[in-house]
């Protein structure tokens, strides 16, 4: 964790103002922030260590994509596929993997490819539904 991120803990007993400022009603709440301290993603509830690891890497990859640090986004997604197969994050990771590849290589065929992979591996996932318009792209 410390290799890739700066971890920060906000204690409900000691830092109630932070809970109010960030509109946190229930714990645990995890947020992913950029290096300027701006919140990009948040999630609630208890996750198993693999689910937590995959979720954090996926949200980090989406921040890197936003920051146009696409090589870093690619590496975060690769780490999910290597270390966290079988987690709930995989369909969304496939979706963003295609998006990052399209950005890196400026080729829309990666969007069509991500749709085909999702249809094959996760036909019932919401991410397969979200990728449906990419069927209009020629392979």
């Amino acid at each position: 964790m410390n290799n890739q991120f700066i971890p920060l803990r906000i204690n409900r007993e000691k830092q109630r103002a932070m809970f109010k400022q960030y509109l946190v009603a229930w714990t645990p709440t995890i947020m992913l922030l950029d290096m300027d301290g701006k919140v990009h993603h948040r999630f609630n509830g208890f996750l198993t260590p693999p689910e937590m690891g995959a979720r954090i890497l996926l949200d980090a990859a989406k921040i890197e994509l936003f920051l146009q640090r696409n090589d870093r986004a690619r590496r975060q997604l690769d780490n999910i596929f290597t270390d966290y197969q079988g987690t709930f994050a995989i369909p969304e990771a496939i979706f963003y993997s295609g998006v990052v590849d399209m950005e890196l290589q400026e080729d829309p065929k990666f969007l069509r490819q991500l749709l085909e992979r999702l249809r094959k591996e996760f036909p019932l996932s919401e991410w397969t539904m979200k990728a449906k318009p990419y069927e209009l792209i020629d392979l």
Binding site: F5, I10, T27, M35, I56
Partner: peptide
């Protein structure tokens, strides 16, 4: 072992210096 920061401002300073993202965990000690 995870080394947690407790100060938001210090965390942002470190994140800027290292080019790293921040994981912020709101927790209840009870």
């Amino acid at each position: 072992m995870i080394i947690w920061q407790e100060s938001f401002d210090t965390t942002v300073q470190k994140a800027k210096a290292d080019g790293k993202l921040i994981v912020m965990d709101f927790f209840n000690p009870h």
